[in-house]
């Protein structure tokens, strides 16, 4: 599967015209669309809202990177992968960052044909991160469910003087009657009992 991510809408942010031209050429050659080129002082939020890029290329040291961080927060439902590039003199940053999984870095002066491969890496890594965040939330929820169901069962057994199976049956029926997930209902019971 070579370059699965074709025809992407790319936003380029940099003050270095030569570097911009090099990247643009390489990306266009790979079938991507440059929707906007901005200098580092430009209003990035407005640029993103207006042009709806799929991916953003920005200098690792641009002050406006903090603005992009907030973008990730605001548009959590549709965050965008960001490709960072660094000056050749800062190759150490790039290599270490790629190694550490921080982000995909493109080093200035890199052969243009590698740009698109790096774009794929950035997007793949971004998607892995998104999936991990989702999985982590789901895993946390499952763990919490197990723990709270156990606790609620224990509480019912003690209060009603019933055995474990009966307690679980009662919990499940009460949750079903109220059209709630059993974990959520267990938490409600526990919260209520905390107040007593």
């Amino acid at each position: 599967m070579k370059h699965a991510n074709r025809g992407l809408r790319v936003m380029l942010v940099d003050d270095d015209q030569a570097r911009l031209a090099m990247m643009e050429q390489a990306l266009v050659a790979e079938g991507h669309v440059i929707v906007v080129r901005l200098d580092a002082q430009a209003d990035l939020l407005a640029g993103v809202t207006l042009h709806q890029p799929d991916v953003i290329f920005i200098d690792v040291d641009a002050p406006s990177r903090d603005t992009l961080e907030s973008l990730g927060q605001i548009h959590r439902e549709r965050p965008r992968p960001i490709v960072l590039f660094a000056a050749r003199s800062d190759a150490e940053t790039a290599h270490r960052a790629v190694h550490a999984g921080v982000s995909a870095y493109v080093v200035d002066g890199l052969h243009p044909t590698r740009l698109s491969a790096l774009l794929d890496v950035a997007i793949a890594r971004f998607e892995v991160h998104q999936a991990l965040s989702r999985e982590l939330s789901a895993a946390n929820a499952r763990l919490a469910d197990q723990r709270d169901i156990e606790k609620a069962k224990g509480m019912l057994m003690k209060r009603r003087k019933i055995d474990e199976d009966e307690a679980y049956g009662m919990l499940r029926k009460m949750a079903m009657d109220r059209k709630q997930r059993i974990g959520d209902y267990a938490r409600l019971l526990l919260a209520a009992s905390d107040l007593l």
Partner: peptide, 11 residues
């Protein structure tokens, strides 16, 4: 940028 500082510390 704080983001750049964070990335460099992380890396």
């Amino acid at each position: 940028a704080w983001a750049a500082l964070r990335d460099k510390v992380a890396a």
